[in-house]
């Protein structure tokens, strides 16, 4: 298992924790606006994590590939 794989595992764990937190948050909070905003912010955060660590969006503006 390489360092890169470890990093991926950590990110995935964070994502899983966020997902479960999202679920608990949504089922426990009753005020709809708060709930909506909270869910939207979590979703954007999760998407950003995936885009950066899993999809390597930074490679777009890096000229040559780092292996």
């Amino acid at each position: 298992m390489t360092a890169a794989m470890q990093k991926g595992l950590i990110v995935a764990v964070i994502l899983a924790v966020l997902t479960v937190a999202e679920y608990i948050f949504a089922t426990s909070v009753t005020q709809t606006e708060t709930q909506f905003i909270g869910l939207a912010v979590t979703a954007i955060g999760k998407a950003a994590l995936i885009c950066y660590y899993f999809m390597h969006i930074y490679r777009l503006w890096r000229a040559e590939e780092a292996h």
């Binding site: 997902t19 949504a26 709930q35 869910l39 979703a43």
Partner: peptide, 13 residues
């Protein structure tokens, strides 16, 4: 990523 947005919109909201 798409599901990250669809999941709360369909199940949690």
């Amino acid at each position: 990523v798409v599901w990250v947005f669809f999941y709360p919109a369909l199940y949690l909201v």
